[in-house]
């Protein structure tokens, strides 16, 4: 006898080629258990060694009227209007298919300006001096698979799918948090055509 788990989150399904311009990811720090599965999956998928990583989980706690303790799995947000892209002097950072912000390692000269200007800590400095960042697993998307981090995330803290559906999902999750007395906020929920829109939505506490 088997039960099929009915997760309220949209589960990233495999299909032949995503419409990359419409996909997105929801990173929900309220659900993250800090297991670092995403971190390791990212390093495995993108052949990163040791401390080199495009994704990092930060342990955070804040003591106010109550103790807020969460894990922030930080990675590139694939902004519609990325500051790293504007700052890069060599064009190593450029738009890829469907608005994915790509970093081309061979063009990178290691000036690290992108890492400095990114307001979200999404660009990381690698041990070889160049920078590196999330590619939204474009090679996996092309195969109809979801990114490595969302594929393994055991709690739905990183979910992949149609961005519009994820915005609705985030709204429901925020309501649920409010009922628990926690105030969350959704970041990156702007227009993808204009400013403030991110492909990767972050639900922050």
């Amino acid at each position: 006898m088997m039960r099929v788990k009915q997760n309220s989150a949209p589960v990233g399904v495999r299909h032949a080629g995503w419409d990359v311009s419409r996909v997105g990811m929801l990173v929900d720090v309220s659900r993250c258990i800090g297991c670092n599965s995403c971190t390791v999956a990212c390093r495995q998928e993108n052949a990163l060694q040791g401390s080199d990583g495009w994704l990092k989980v930060w342990r955070r706690e804040r003591l106010g009227t109550q103790l807020i303790r969460y894990d922030y799995s930080q990675s590139c947000r694939h902004c519609a209007d990325p500051q790293c892209l504007q700052a890069c002097p060599t064009g190593a950072i450029a738009y890829g298919a469907g608005g994915v912000v790509r970093h081309h390692e061979e063009k990178c000269i290691g000036c690290q300006v992108c890492a400095m200007v990114c307001p979200y800590g999404g660009v990381k400095v690698m041990t070889n001096g160049k920078t590196g960042k999330c590619s939204l697993c474009a090679h996996r998307l092309a195969k109809g698979e979801e990114p490595a981090c969302t594929a393994v995330c055991p709690t739905g803290a990183r979910t992949f799918g149609e961005r519009e559906a994820l915005v609705r999902e985030a709204g429901e999750r925020l309501d649920a948090l409010r009922r628990q007395g926690l105030r969350g906020r959704l970041e990156g929920n702007g227009d993808l055509e204009g400013k403030g829109g991110h492909k990767i939505l972050f639900l922050m506490l």
Partner: peptide, 8 residues
Amino acid sequence: EVYRNRRL
């Protein structure tokens, strides 16, 4: 600790 020294 070499950046991407391994095959994907």
